[in-house]
């Protein structure tokens, strides 16, 4: 007999949020006791449940390596990428898994993302030129220093952990929110972009940067080190300075 088979199998308990709109109007929690493996992440545990216990469990994932941003869930109340959250950090205590907070739930652990998608387009996260150069003019060049100014804001994987961590977004769903503002700021800081004023008109509103009261949790939970809280505060500073300049130098109009 092989040694490892004699060892009584260790297990871990998962309390999983279930919502099946066709059969229930309120969500419930379902408890699964599954084998515990030291090298498993929460996503492995969910995959185990789906493959061997309950095929009806619904959740999103793809890359399993913190790149695609689709496996975000609340793990014991904290927004996490479940593919990089190890069971061993919770064992032997049970783990409670819920869909990302502040979003409507489509089914079980899958949230509805439409609101973010609309907001993302709204802030115009692409390079805006007053006039496009002809193709023959060649590419828009950029120095490494210029790239450095916005690079970390461009690392966003749209995982929505920051929205789930933001109490302002929970209380005021109109708030454009951390990731969308960080992406807008990424283009504002891009030396090739000329759409800063246009974008600031959208951002410098009550639903935009001024809704943020700097809780800072978005930056704490971000798995890609985007620092969305920093992006928002920098946009606030830029907007305030722009306003000051318009008031002090009205003829400047720049």
């Amino acid at each position: 007999m092989m040694a490892e088979q004699t060892v009584a199998e260790r297990t871990i308990t998962l309390e999983v949020f279930r919502y099946r709109p066709e059969q229930e109007s309120e969500p419930t929690f379902q408890t699964y006791e599954i084998p515990y493996r030291e090298d498993w992440v929460v996503l492995d545990a969910l995959n185990y449940i789906k493959d061997s216990v309950d095929g009806s469990l619904t959740y999103r994932w793809s890359c399993r390596m913190g790149v695609c941003g689709s496996c975000g869930m609340m793990v014991n109340g904290v927004p996490k990428l479940t593919c990089s959250t190890f069971l061993k950090d919770y064992y032997p205590h049970p783990i409670r898994i819920e869909p990302l907070a502040n979003f409507p739930v489509a089914r079980d652990l899958a949230i509805v993302l439409d609101d973010f998608m609309a907001k993302l387009v709204h802030v115009r996260p692409w390079i805006i030129r007053r006039q496009e150069e002809p193709l023959e003019a060649g590419e828009y060049r950029q120095t490494p220093e210029e790239l450095d100014r916005y690079k970390h804001f461009s690392m966003c994987i749209n995982c929505m952990l920051c929205y789930a961590a933001c109490p302002i977004y929970g209380l005021e769903p109109e708030f454009v929110g951390p990731a969308a503002i960080a992406l807008a700021q990424r283009y504002n800081l891009d030396s090739r972009d000329q759409g800063g004023r246009e974008r600031m008109g959208i951002l410098s509103t009550h639903e935009g940067i001024w809704a943020c009261t700097l809780v800072g949790e978005c930056t704490t939970v971000c798995p890609a080190e985007v620092d969305p809280a920093g992006a928002i505060q920098q946009a606030k500073l830029a907007s305030a300075l722009g306003w000051l300049r318009r008031v002090l130098v009205p003829w400047g109009n720049k």
């Binding site: 919502y19 489509a106 509805v112």
Partner: peptide
Amino acid sequence: MRAYSRPTEFNWW
């Protein structure tokens, strides 16, 4: 599809 919206708890803070 009937999405479920979870209310923000009073004690969120």
